[in-house]
Amino acid sequence: MSLIQTKNLHLHYGNFHALKDVNIEIGRNEVVALIGPSGCGKSTYLRTLNRMNDLIDGTSIKGEIIIDGQNIYDKKLDVNELRKKVGMVFQKPTPFPKSIFENVAYGLRVNGIHKKAEVEETVEQSLKQAALWDEVKNDLKKSALALSGGQQQRLCIARTIAVKPEIILMDEPTSALDPLSTLQIEQLIEELRKTFTVVIVTHNMQQAYRISHKTAFFYLGELIEYADTKQLFENPQHERTKNYVQGKFG
């Protein structure tokens, strides 16, 4: 059974129908890229997976999203538990105004992990996994705001890894970064997919092609095509996909 099953998902922002009958299955340890023109609903879909849209007034949801066999829109579900399981990295790096160490430790502390040794070990591990450890190991006490954009984004990834999620959502994680930092993050994602399931929104077709197993193409709130990445880019089945992908990729 797939790790994430999305069934007949509809989402409204007030009267605006932003997601229309979306059906996607994502398997464990897959990397899935979400592509499509601006405003087509990629971020909206991504944010349904950790219920981030709950924070926006006036959204309503129909349909089901089942993660690990559990409907995440079930009333009995603890949203904070869900968000531990489904981590998220944003477009702009969002370090907290704290030290590098405290940024990574934050997720542990708010989830009740306070043992010093455990926190320290997890922070180190996470920073290593996010390929940032060597650069910051001597200034863990320094403010995270002093890091470069690329470092900040890797810090945000480390922060997400630290709470040991199963799934990591990424919304255009490299669009605010320079090419070198982008490359580092892409290499990182290739490492991460050994351990995590990754759903990533990107406007960069080459990136989607390089790093993902599967790709979903959205258009005006609808899922037009969802297939293996190679197939979607080289042999798209739908006219719209073809137009979009070829315009930006071919």
Binding site: M52, N80, M88, F90, K92, P97, G107, V110, N111
Partner: peptide, 25 residues
């Protein structure tokens, strides 16, 4: 908004986000 969401995304509840991220910021 991103900062608040980042806190929520790590499983922090509203009070934790207020006390540890929003007010310090």
């Amino acid at each position: 908004k991103e900062l608040k969401e980042a806190s929520f995304a790590l499983g922090a509840n509203h009070w934790q986000s207020i006390a540890r991220v929003i007010v310090p910021y």
